[in-house]
Write a protein that binds this DNA or RNA. Structure first.
Length: 462
RNA sequence: UCCUCGAUAGCUCAGCGGUAGAGCGGUCGGCUGUUAACCGAUUGGUCGUAAGUUCGAAUCUUACUCGGGGAGCCA
C-alpha cells in the first residue's frame, strides 16, 4: 500500500517513511543529484523527490526518469530547503514501471494550449489544469449526491434508451441494430422500425424529467443524475452531444419551492467544492479566471435576485445599452440579454420566472393570467442559463389542451396524462447542466475541457 | 447550421511573391538545493489537402478538411 501525495503534502511530517506511486512531471538535474516532481493525481501540487547520486543505479535511473515515466518511490520525508514546498521525499529506493521516451512523449514540461490537449485526450488528464478540473468535477458530483441524500431525495436511474420522442428538447439520436446495409422498408418506403430491436423507433434520452415525474408521484422527492444526449449540430463552447444532467423533481412543491431549492442547491455545491478542493480552486483563480473565487463567494453569501420575465423585459427596455436582438414582451431572452441582466445589472445569479407560455414547453404550469407559465431560469454571469425549471402542469384538462396547442398527440403521452388522472399533485423540478456547472465553477471557457471524453459534432475519438 | 478568424519544426508562433525563422522542447556537455532551474552547443520542416495564377507560391485565387471565437438551438 502506498501513500497518497495529497495526504503527504497536507499532513506529512519529517522522518516519516513513505512510499508513493505516480508519474514523473519534471526532473531537474545537477551534478551528483537531482530533483523530480511526482504526481499521483490526488492533488494539484506534486511531491518533490530528491535523488542523491549514491542511490543504487543512479546513473541509469536518472536517464529513465523523464516526464511521463511511472515510478514507485520509497524514502523518508524531510523538511525542504526550498521555498515552494514544506516537505519533500528523500528517495531510498526507486522503481520504474514504464518509461516515457522524451523524444516522442506528447506532453512537455511547458504550457500547452487546450486545443492541442484535446488532440491527446488520453494523456491530457496528466496536466495541471485538466487534473484540477477532474478533481473539481468529482467534488461537484459528490456534493450533488450529498445535498440530495441529506434532504431525503431518492436517486432515480432513468433510462438512457427511450421510445418517447416527445420530450421537446432538441434532436435525438436513434438507437438501432437494423442492418444499415439493408434497411427494411415499409410499403410506403419508410424505414420499418417494427423490425428493429425494440419493435419501434428508439432514441437516446434527451432528458430524464418525464420519468423522474413518474417516480416523484410515488417517492415525493427524487433526482436524476446521468448522461443525456442531443444530436443538435451545435458548435459552441457551451454544448456537448453527450453531457450529464441533474434533475430533481418534487411532489407537493410549487414554483417558489423550486426556486428555493435551486438556490440552496447551488450554494451548497459551491461551498462544498471550496472546502474540498481549495488548492484547485486557487489554481483556477490564478491561472484561468481571476474572478473564480469572487464568484463562488458571491454565490455562497448573497441571495439570488428574483424577478419575473415581465420585469426583465422592462429592465432591458430601460437599459442604456444597444442590443443586437429586439426586446419585446413575448420574445425569448437572447444570450446578450441574459448576460446583461446577470453580469451588468445585478452582477450575481438571477432567477427569472413566469415566461410567456408560447416560448416554453407544454408541461409547464399555466399561470392564472393565462398568458404565462410557472417557468424559472437561473441565469449566471458568463454562462447564461445554468438551470431551467418549472412547476409542472398537474391539471389534466389544461395539460391535454396545452399538448394539443403545441401540435403534439395526447395519446403518445398517455402515461404522462395518467399521472394527472390518478392522484395528481402539484409538483416542480429543474434541470442543471452538469458540465456548465463545472465550467461556471472553474472558469474554464470551453465545455470540452471539463468532461473527460467530450462528444461533439465530428468528434467522438477515444 | 450561419458569420468570422486561423492551419508553417514535437509545442507556441513570426515570415505574407524571390527558395524556411524564433522561443520553448529534445539531444550532448557544464553546475551540491533546484522548482517555468540556469549556462554553452546542437537537433529539427513535403509551410493542412487538392487544383489554379506566376519565370518563381508558405505568401495570391478557388474548393475541401480540421480547429478557435461569436450566433442560433439549448443544459
Amino acid at each position: 500500500m502506498s501513500n497518497r501525495i495529497i495526504d503527504i503534502l497536507r499532513s506529512g511530517n519529517a522522518d516519516e517513511t513513505v512510499k508513493i506511486q505516480g508519474w514523473v512531471r519534471t526532473k531537474r538535474e545537477s551534478k551528483g543529484f537531482a530533483f523530480m516532481e511526482v504526481s499521483d493525481g490526488s492533488s494539484l501540487d506534486n511531491l518533490q523527490v530528491v535523488l542523491n547520486g549514491d542511490l543504487e543505479g543512479y546513473a541509469d535511473l536518472i536517464k529513465k526518469l523523464n516526464t511521463g515515466a511511472s515510478v514507485s518511490v520509497s524514502g523518508v520525508l524531510v523538511s525542504s530547503h526550498g521555498k515552494k514546498q514544506k516537505i519533500e521525499l528523500q528517495a531510498i529506493a526507486v522503481t520504474i514501471f514504464g518509461e516515457a521516451d522524451p523524444e516522442t512523449y506528447p506532453l512537455q514540461k511547458k504550457r500547452h494550449s487546450f486545443e492541442y490537449l484535446r488532440t491527446i485526450g488520453h494523456l491530457r488528464p496528466r496536466t495541471n489544469t485538466i487534473g484540477a478540473v477532474m478533481r473539481v468535477r468529482n467534488a461537484c458530483a459528490t456534493a450533488i449526491h450529498n445535498f440530495f441524500q441529506e434532504k431525503g431525495f431518492m436517486w432515480i436511474h432513468t433510462p438512457i434508451i427511450t421510445a418517447s420522442d416527445c420530450e421537446g428538447a432538441g434532436e435525438l439520436f436513434t438507437v438501432t441494430n437494423l442492418n444499415l446495409e439493408q434497411i427494411p422498408r415499409t410499403e410506403t418506403n419508410k424505414i420499418d422500425f417494427s423490425q428493429d430491436f425494440f419493435g419501434r423507433q428508439a432514441y437516446l434520452t434527451v432528458s430524464g424529467q418525464l420519468e423522474a415525474e413518474i417516480m416523484a408521484m410515488s417517492f415525493q422527492n427524487v433526482y436524476t443524475f446521468g448522461p443525456t444526449f442531443r444530436a443538435e449540430n451545435s458548435n459552441t463552447s457551451r454544448h456537448l452531444a453527450e453531457f450529464w444532467m441533474v434533475e430533481p423533481e418534487m411532489a407537493f412543491c410549487d414554483i417558489e419551492g423550486d426556486q428555493n431549492l435551486a438556490e440552496e442547491f447551488l450554494k451548497y455545491i459551491f461551498r462544498s467544492v471550496l472546502e474540498n478542493c481549495p488548492e484547485d480552486m486557487e489554481f483556477f483563480n490564478e491561472r484561468i479566471d481571476k474572478t473564480v473565487l469572487e464568484t463562488a463567494n458571491n454565490i455562497i453569501n448573497n441571495s439570488f435576485e428574483r424577478i419575473t420575465y415581465t420585469e426583465a423585459i422592462n429592465l432591458l427596455e430601460k437599459a442604456d445599452q444597444k442590443f443586437e436582438y429586439p426586446v419585446s414582451w413575448g420574445l425569448d431572452l437572447q444570450s446578450e440579454h441574459e448576460r446583461y441582466l446577470a453580469e451588468e445589472l445585478f452582477k450575481k445569479p438571477i432567477i427569472v420566472r413566469d415566461y410567456p407560455k408560447e416560448i416554453k414547453a407544454f408541461y409547464m404550469r399555466l399561470n392564472d393570467d393565462n398568458k404565462t407559465v410557472a417557468a424559472m431560469d437561473v441565469l449566471a454571469p458568463k454562462i447564461g442559463e445554468i438551470i431551467g425549471g418549472s412547476q409542472r402542469e398537474e391539471r389534466l384538462d389544461i395539460l391535454q389542451q396545452r399538448i394539443i396547442e403545441q401540435g403534439m398527440k395526447p395519446e403518445d403521452l398517455w402515461w404522462y396524462l395518467d399521472l394527472r388522472k390518478y392522484g395528481t399533485v402539484p409538483h416542480a423540478g429543474f434541470g442543471l447542466g452538469f458540465e456548465r456547472l463545472v465550467q461556471f465553477m472553474t472558469g474554464m471557457t470551453n465545455i470540452r475541457d471539463v468532461i473527460p471524453f467530450p462528444r461533439t459534432p465530428l468528434n467522438a475519438s477515444l
